[in-house]
């Protein structure tokens, strides 16, 4: 008993303090660092850069192409309307400033200065001029963390838009880690060449299909077990200052269940069979 008391007199305070520190750290971890994200966002607020609109509009050719695209989209919309093809209305993006990068070097993240208060949800899609950037993986009241396309853990289903060759991309390490990713194809014989555009595929559950990802930089057909290509991402991930966040509406994955009694079903009975 005396020894316990002596021990307590010597180490009691230290043990209590250590316990308190561990407890607080555990609580912070349990809340997924929401407090830390909030306070970081608060500190970084004065350092937001204002969106540089002039630089984005400088390129006259890009503007011309954009106008043509709008024109084509409008025509397409009219044709779709004529055909009775309905599509979900595209929602407006939430502009969000980039205020930080990952707090560790094993993951590739962005910290954005917009959160739940501004309508950001988990798994929202983050875009920038140029294409997809990533997906919201953590969100607090006024900040959010984005898992980038170039993250080595993140695999995203993509397709080559010219030939519809499908595969997935994964991040790579090295000095070009932020700007290039590796695409692995599902098939052995694929038709792909340098310069082909790569978009997100319909197989991907993480992203809606058809979003621009990048361009094929080089192809290695001899790679085992399946060919590989190096994709140059079109979004300038390493130099991003502003992004746009769009809510992700996952496609309906409900399977069509077969009718147990097809004979009684109304669709199958043709008018000729009726008495």
């Amino acid at each position: 008993m005396l020894s316990v008391r002596r021990w307590w007199e010597r180490f009691g305070t230290t043990t209590l303090w250590t316990g308190a520190a561990v407890g607080i750290a555990l609580i912070i971890r349990h809340t997924q660092g929401g407090f830390l994200l909030e306070s970081y966002q608060l500190i970084a607020r004065p350092f937001y850069s204002s969106p540089d609109r002039t630089a984005q509009l400088e390129n006259a050719q890009a503007q011309e192409l954009q106008q043509r695209l709008i024109d084509l989209q409008n025509k397409n919309q009219k044709l779709e309307d004529l055909l009775g093809f309905t599509q979900a209305q595209k929602s407006k993006g939430i502009p969000a400033p980039v205020i930080g990068r990952s707090a560790d070097h094993w993951w590739s993240n962005l910290v954005l200065g917009r959160g739940k208060k501004d309508g950001v949800e988990l798994n929202s899609i983050v875009m920038s001029p140029g294409g997809v950037v990533g997906r919201v993986s953590k969100v607090s009241d006024s900040g959010s963390v984005v898992t980038l396309l170039s993250d080595a853990f993140n695999q995203v289903g993509v397709t080559v838009s010219r030939t519809r060759a499908t595969g997935f991309i994964k991040g790579q390490s090295g000095d070009k880690a932020g700007s290039q990713v590796i695409m692995e194809f599902f098939d052995k014989n694929v038709d792909v060449r340098r310069g082909d555009t790569v978009v997100t595929s319909a197989f991907s559950k993480k992203f809606p299909s058809g979003l621009p990802v990048g361009r094929v930089e080089s192809v290695d057909m001899g790679k085992s077990p399946s060919p590989e290509a190096v994709i140059q991402l079109t979004a300038p991930i390493a130099a991003l200052e502003w992004t746009a966040i769009y809510p992700h509406l996952p496609p309906q994955t409900e399977d069509l269940t077969p009718d147990p009694e097809p004979r009684n079903s109304k669709i199958l009975t043709s008018p000729a069979e009726k008495p």
Binding site: V22, A25, R29, Q32, G33, W107
Partner: peptide
């Protein structure tokens, strides 16, 4: 003391990543 500091700061870094 060294190890408990490692534990606390490790938990905090986990919260950030």
């Amino acid at each position: 003391q060294g190890m408990s500091a490692g534990l606390v700061l490790g938990l905090l870094q986990d919260a950030m990543t």
